[in-house]
Design a protein around this nucleic acid. Sequence first.
RNA 1: GCUGUUGUAGCUCAGCGGUAGAGCACUUCCUUGGUAAGGAAGAGGUCAUGGGUUCAAGUCCCAUCAACAGCUCCA
Length: 646
Amino acid sequence: MIHITFPDGSVREYAKGITGFQLAESISPRLAAEVLAIGVNGVTLDLSRPIENDATIQLYKWDDPEGKHAYWHSSAHLMAEALQELYPGIKFGIGPAIENGFYYDVDPGEAVIKESDLPAIEAKMAALAASKELIVRKEISKQEALDFFKQKGDEYKVELISDLTDGTISFYSQGDFTDLCRGPHLQNTGEIKAIKLLSVAGAYWRGDEKRKQLTRIYGITFPKKKMLDEYLAFLEEAKKRDHRKVGKELELFTFSQAVGAGLPLWLPKGTILRNRLEDFLKRIQKRFGYQQVITPHIGQKELWVTSGHYAKYGKDSFQPIHTPQEGEEFLLKPMNCPHHCEIYKAFPHSYKDLPIRYAEFGTVYRYEQSGELHGLTRVRGFTQDDAHIFCRPDQLKDEFLKVMDIIFIIFNALDFKNFEAQISLRDPNDREKYIGSDENWEKAERAIVEACEEKGLKANVVLGEAAFYGPKLDFMVKDAIGRRWQLGTIQVDYNLPERFDLEYTGADNQKHRPVMIHRAPFGSMERFVAVLIEHTGGKFPLWLTPEQAVVLPISEKFNEYAHQVAQQLDLKDIRVSVDDRNEKIGRKIRDNELKRIPYLLIVGEKEMEAGVVAVRKQGEGDQGAKTVDAFAADINAEVEKMMKVF
RNA sequence: GCUGUUGUAGCUCAGCGGUAGAGCACUUCCUUGGUAAGGAAGAGGUCAUGGGUUCAAGUCCCAUCAACAGCUCCA
């Protein structure tokens, strides 16, 4: 007999060799029907694996990542099996489960697999799943494994096996398909009910661009058809919110081939939005003791030679600008830090002056690879909501806490309710590659960890992800439909103060090196606006939106009154326009609703005579009549209320 | 940067060797309306750019530029 400890701490006795599935059965048939994998002493295994010794176990269902992982991994195998039947001789690379579904990299030889072939593969998968093939695990020696795939002619698998250690290799088989795999897997293919293959793409073998490109097929599966339908609806929703599409529809920004790839042009409405965001952040920063500065878009090449960036990125950047003057070279600035360091250096500093916080909406230019460019989230010219804090080492934690406060205010104001953080620390095994003293690093790392704890912030600590010049804290938000985006960042820097020879005079009358903090709560204006669009679907909060209200005259007879109303509202700083097209009111309402304008003000005979407007609120319909002044007061009160919160 | 796909009217797209098309948007006219699409007429395109093949090229081929997807990358 063996003792099995359950997650709730209870212990039960079972016969030696019991499988995970039998364990689940012993608890309830329903659990047995839902369980997908089992964790045995922290290792996820197949349900069919016998348990030989005392163990602490956890049964994984669909809602557990481990359960989904097994499910999708088996789905990848199912797809491979289908491919093998449809494309005899096809060779297989790797086929893992991913965050949403799975993929398999395959080499179909002469054949070409196109998006239009996917339904046929799906149908084959469904047929194979319906036959409920058992998935069987077999441990195998390295030699046998090599022989098997050599004979099959699957050179990719042979290569993978060559890198494995004998004794750790296992095969999984179902029907006529056998794959090299660590598992775990489902017990049989029949559990896979709803199947959708999503796309085909090229991917290099082992991610190496010098090696052969394989065909990668992405798919997703679910235990219930309804779940698949919901997922497909989610993809549709994501498409509708795509900031590139919404940005065009709402006339926020555009790109021009003539201007160049990755160089966004902000349209008037997008500019209003962006200016509102900038003003908002400036207001908060002022309260937190920041000073705005402005620096040029270029600087002498030497500046980045000094900072060390030229050596590291110079070759892959926009190249130096040459002037008529012999030997002069300027660079478009890829970051604002050196300029701010020079501002710091313009005066001598006492320890009493610190911290000094210089903020700038600084536009920078980075030559991103052409294939990386994507809407506003990855561009070649963008504006960072940048600031550099120069402080004493003992002020580091306090400054971190303050920056976090700013970030929380922003997230709160823009209704990002779900966020988490990642703390990137040094690789403890490779201290050589980091600049700065051990003492400072430890102090900084401790400051970050403690700051997160004090704020009750859920933070994921990752070792080895720190920049060579300092540890950092990155923020990830979840948007309204659950997607994760990386936004703000706070980074400690020991490198630049050193390289720029920054100093302050301490209480001991000695020169000391300040610590520098880089921080950008939005990340960049471009990226933030993109995320905000995808988060809100283009329905921006009232204080931010480029157009707060539009006046809709019922007929042309009321156009004059409509313009009077608009003028009156404009005097009260409300962003308003008039839709005086020769169209029926229903049409005007529809068009302006689609423009996501929060308030539609309908004016006809009744309103004109009474000197009022009929208010229609976005998504809520008719709100009744109000005087123009009352409406203006309400709007401004609503905005004011929101602004007060932060 | 690599691989693949795509580029036709302001937008969304059809046409795929033989005189440039639709819907929406736009202009004009009719209509003057009451809470999510009123009607008619009209205007608008060197078919991304540059070469080539052909009697003939949006249509086939090559290059460049750009977009999209994936890979690789992101100070």
